[in-house]
Design a protein around this nucleic acid. Structure first.
Lengths: 188, 188
DNA sequence: ACAAGTGATGGCATTGCGTGACATCAGAAT
DNA sequence: ATTCTGATGTCACGCAATGCCATCACTTGT
């Protein structure tokens, strides 16, 4: 018989999310989360650097996929061509839960300054992943940085539109549309 | 005779900066900062929300100036035209200390995860200021958001180039150059 | 098969952050 | 002269976060 229940990290994530919904982020303490997950407070901090991190367990997926797409792209393509071609794959692979989950999560994040700040790390990590990916292809450093920022902008704005959209516009379509509008805005 | 020494906030800022340079950010405690400034710990937290904030006292200046420039711009100009025209004024008004100060500050920020995260709030606040400024002029919300992100990108990348530049390229020139390159990158 | 090693966890102690509540008192206001 | 205001000090406290050591099911090596 196993000594511990499986998936400690996942249980902590779930317990944290539930408690944040029920009581709010600030009102829930780490001991509460740990208790609901059947673990000790100390173990929570072995899996997450801080209380906020339990809400951002999946944030590494996007930068990682972006880095993979860039690394595998044909050498002939420029940065923004790779990006435009890669949006469909990203939209298909990420945000695979029910949309209501992401909306509830978004509400929690907006309710707390620390969480809003924490959320900024994902686009920043995406920029970093894109920038190094482009640089490794020989793109000029400044151009790589700019292309990375433009891409992260399209991504962030698209997520915002997706979350705010009352209809069910697919993320892929919003990414393409936002990308086109970004280009038009830039050259206006 | 005055009951308290003047400029408590400024003394706290200065004490914090000195201690961060001398000992590093993590090794410095708030009681240490307060003691050097001749104030109590409690007073520190009346002026700053947390220990990191003492390094970001000036961060409101940029979004505020940006909002002012947009509000006062001729109605005929589009978002990015306003921005291009406003860079000179921003470069003249901001970053007025010795460059070595900003380099030292940058080194401190890079040394700590919490500070790196905290630093992301300025560009985010800038985006927000720009976005609302553009929206108040009647710009479509998505276009306003995109123009705000593009502007913040140019600003952030320019600051990065300025800090990394061994020569003394003026910030205004870097802003103009980065703006042009951003446009070229977007339409590539 | 037995011994030693591994790794995830629990428990405890500790430090420092951040906040609420109340007191103090110079200078301003009336 | 009295009251008010506002920045500060003092004290107490809860919680976040980390270091250290013990535990013990499972794995590895001999």
């Amino acid at each position: 018989m196993a000594r511990w229940q499986p998936n400690a990290r996942g249980r902590l994530e779930r317990a944290a999310f539930e408690l944040f919904v029920e009581q709010g982020f600030q009102a829930t303490t780490v001991p509460q989360i740990a208790e609901r997950a059947g673990l000790s407070t100390r173990t929570f901090f072995r899996h997450f650097a801080d209380k906020r991190d339990a809400l951002f367990a999946e944030e590494h997926a996007v930068p990682e996929q972006a880095a993979r797409i860039i690394a595998e792209a044909p050498a002939s393509l420029g940065p923004l061509q790779i990006v435009a071609d890669g949006f469909d794959a990203v939209a298909a692979a990420q945000f695979s839960r029910e949309k209501s989950y992401y909306i509830a999560r978004h509400r929690i994040i907006q309710s707390d300054d620390g969480l809003r700040e924490r959320q900024l790390r994902m686009p920043a990590a995406l920029v970093e992943a894109l920038r190094t990916g482009f640089e490794h292809r020989g793109v000029d450093p400044v151009d790589a940085t700019l292309a990375a920022h433009l891409t992260a902008t399209v991504f962030s704005v698209s997520i915002g539109r997706w979350l705010a959209s009352p209809s069910d516009e697919p993320l892929a379509a919003l990414l393409r549309d936002t990308f086109d509008r970004m280009r038009r805005t830039a050259s206006s």
